[in-house]
Amino acid sequence: MPWNDNSQGPWGGGESPWGRGQKNNNNGSGGRKDPPGLDELFNEVKKRLGGGGGGSGAGGDNGLNFGNFGVRGVLLVILVLVAGWLLTGFYRVQPDEQGVVLRFGQYVNTTAPGLHYHFPYPIEEVLTPKVTTVNRTDVGQTFGDQDRGVGGRANTNESQMVTRDANIVDINFSVFWRIKDAGDYLFRIADPVVSVKAVAESVMREVIGRENLEPILTEGRQRTEEQAQNLMQAILDEYQSGIEVTQMQLQKVDPPAEVIDAFRDVEAARQDQERLRNEADAYANKVIPEARGEAEKINQEAEAYRNRVVAEAEGEAARFEKILDEYILAPGVTRERIYLETLEQVLKGNNKIILEQDGGGQQAIPFLPLDRLMRQPNNQNNGAAQ
């Protein structure tokens, strides 16, 4: 008896395990609708796949028949799926990224920006971290997203350091870094941000421990930054971290709060000293060139006077030699000429009165003050001017 032949089943009254019979809509009489058998279900599936109907009886086909779809269609679908899966292996690395290829989770190589191919997932996968973004790590002060650059919470455990002369200095500084090698960055160190901060704090403590307090507070800040940056880069390279430190910047360098007022007074006095020194240097730079210029002027004038006197003396000597030659040739004429030239030089610019020596000159008034009469108009002009 088939399993669905339960007209006299254990539920009695012709009931099935699915409940009581339902009315037949065709004839209106009461009856039961039995569930389909396994053969009927199998035949229905074969029909939907394109095969013909029929059970396990004669003329039926017990094998799986795909009908018009066929084996070729199934293979075509499989090939299309495989081709689509293989095409998912193409990937693009942006100019600000590096591609890190993993094969079954193990690092294989690093690819440059551009279009590349790898075996599709789950055989290989690619990570593309940003390598041009400059990251910032602060030590000694904790900043939030809203107050970065404005202020933060001080962390004295990180900021207070001891100098070589056994003084305590409170330092806040920032480290700017970027990814140099994405493969090393992702797989050589567990937590890059924590590692950068720990190395930066350790390096700064070492550099501060080699310096006295005064240079750190005044002119030694840039030297401290450079030394700390170089030492930190060397340590990160030794760790093969794939990180490049681009800049290390001291934000605040102060003595402890208990003595900060006294240090500020000292710093103000040092600034006044520097200002006065600069003013003195400026005055010296002004006066010294002027004095040097005046000295050079006097030297040049003296040199010119010397050259002029020497030239005049040489000229007079040459003139005397020529006169001597002429005197030897004609003594009388030369003597008279020298006498006349001497009178010309002596009487030049003086008032002169000429009287005749013959009888006509006797008629002149001997006491007539001609020289005073000639000077009188000049005296009157001077008095009028006063």
Rank of each mutant, 00 (worst) to 15 (best):
D5F: 00
N6S: 13
N6A: 12
N6V: 15
G13S: 08
S16V: 06
R20F: 03
G21F: 07
N24D: 15
N27S: 04
D34P: 03
E40G: 02
E40H: 04
L41M: 14
E44P: 04
E44H: 12
K46Q: 13
R48K: 10
A58C: 04
D61G: 10
D61H: 11
N62T: 07
G67E: 05
G70E: 02
G73C: 10
L75E: 10
L76P: 03
V80G: 15
V82R: 05
V82Y: 13
L87R: 08
T88D: 08
T88Y: 02
Y91I: 01
V93M: 09
P95L: 10
D96F: 13
V100L: 11
L102E: 04
F104V: 07
G105V: 05
Y107D: 01
V108S: 05
T110K: 08
T111G: 06
P113C: 12
F119G: 03
E124V: 02
V131M: 03
T132N: 15
V134R: 11
T137I: 10
G140W: 03
G140M: 06
G140P: 07
G144E: 13
D147N: 15
G151T: 04
N157P: 04
E158T: 12
V162D: 02
I168A: 03
D170R: 14
D170E: 12
N172D: 12
F173I: 05
R178C: 08
G183V: 00
L186C: 09
A190E: 15
V194G: 15
M204N: 08
E214F: 11
P215K: 01
T218A: 07
R223G: 08
E226M: 14
A228S: 12
A228C: 11
Q233V: 06
D237Y: 09
Q240F: 09
G242M: 08
V245H: 04
T246G: 01
T246Y: 00
T246S: 03
K252E: 13
K252I: 11
D254I: 07
R264L: 08
R275T: 14
N278Q: 15
D281W: 14
A284C: 06
A284P: 07
A295W: 11
E296C: 01
A311F: 06
A311C: 06
A313S: 11
G315N: 11
E321A: 15
L329F: 00
A330I: 00
E336Q: 13
R337E: 00
L340T: 08
E341V: 00
E341C: 00
E344D: 04
N351D: 13
I354A: 05
P366N: 13
L368T: 13
P369Y: 05
N378P: 01
N381V: 11
A384S: 13
